[in-house]
Design a protein around this nucleic acid. Structure first.
Lengths: 199, 199
DNA sequence: GTCTATATCCCGATAGAC
DNA sequence: GTCTATCGGGATATAGAC
């Protein structure tokens, strides 16, 4: 039996160039299919067909269908955190929450297929880390207050949850109406958030 | 062939009491199963098993699986709009948005199984009315400004989208942490929303 | 290394016994 | 009115040819 890169052991030795290419292609078509038809309607057969190969070939490169979609989810999530993280790091502490909101909405508006995939991922994900969603933004809000020399203030957890949900709403609206002005919406949300944060 | 109440014609003649009971029971177990295991994992077999009958029996009372879940969705949606609608009607126009937010969060926090079902319904729903989600709240916001004699103001569509998303976020957090104080969160959101509305 | 063929399972739905 | 038995289809995954 040949070495499976997605073996249960999970050892991540280097992949050959052509295998790397195949995996990237499969991840890409999976993202497209989920974005277009949703998670439930994305079967192995459709992934294989979209990639121009057979089901068996797909399962040679990935151990299971779940492994394919997990790789696709990891890809879009990585792109998101890299982009947003860079924007946050480049902003002064008291404007970091604004940078977070602005870039998060910007990224998802620029990559609507990623947005659909991330939404479906959060829905299907069993055992989600409850805090993972709001903790980063809550930390930014806390630091922003500190940077302005303010004492204990509003509940940053709730503010982060409200802002996170609002971001989802704005991005979701953009998915249904490509003409929706997400930049204006982002600035409205930022104004509300900063007003509540520094109150 | 006996008369099928869910026949394509859709004539809604009165149902017998016992049939009414069976349908209610099936709707209830479907809500529970979707809330617990999600939409995709809720099969006819599981519905039948949870109700203590067989698949065939379920399909006697409903024309198809989709008809069962559609009935369950209609049930939770009806409960939501009735509850929220009454609260909105009982409030003065300039506090109607607050009443909407407060009761929406309250209702979904009090009925977490309904919340899960509604979320899954919105995800799976193909061809959603794009405006259906934010239009009602946007109208309330518009009327609230008018009630206070204010002229043209902020974009009520965006405010409604932000508030709607924030509601989802708060309710979602409650689903993962039963100890989360949704009432305090609701008041925070209302303060932010009214501040932006009457600015 | 990739594909064909197949195995196995579960899905929704139907037919007909009772 | 409810159940048993079964159908046809599509799903994931495996075995083995080449």
């Amino acid at each position: 039996m040949s070495v499976r890169r997605t073996s249960p052991g999970g050892e991540d030795r280097p992949l050959s160039l052509i295998e790397r290419t195949r995996r990237d292609q499969l991840v890409q078509v999976t993202i497209d299919l989920v974005a277009e038809h949703g998670y439930a309607a994305t079967s192995l057969a459709r992934i294989a067909q979209a990639a121009g190969i057979t089901k068996g070939a797909v399962l040679y490169h990935f151990a299971s269908k779940d492994a394919v979609v997990a790789a696709a989810q990891a890809h879009v999530l990585d792109a998101l955190v890299t982009d947003v993280g860079a924007a946050v790091d480049a902003a002064p502490a008291d404007r970091a929450p604004a940078a977070y909101v602005r870039r998060m909405i910007g990224h998802l508006a620029e990559h609507p297929d990623h947005a659909r995939m991330i939404i479906e991922a959060m829905i299907n994900d069993d055992r989600p880390e409850p805090e993972a969603r709001w903790r980063p933004l809550a930390a930014l809000l806390w630091n922003a207050r500190e940077a302005r020399g303010l004492g204990p203030g509003p509940d940053t957890r709730t503010l982060a949850i409200i802002a996170g949900g609002a971001i989802d709403g704005i991005v979701g609206e953009r998915l249904q109406d490509a003409g929706y002005d997400t930049e204006a919406a982002a600035e409205s949300l930022i104004a509300m958030l900063e007003s509540a944060t520094f109150a």
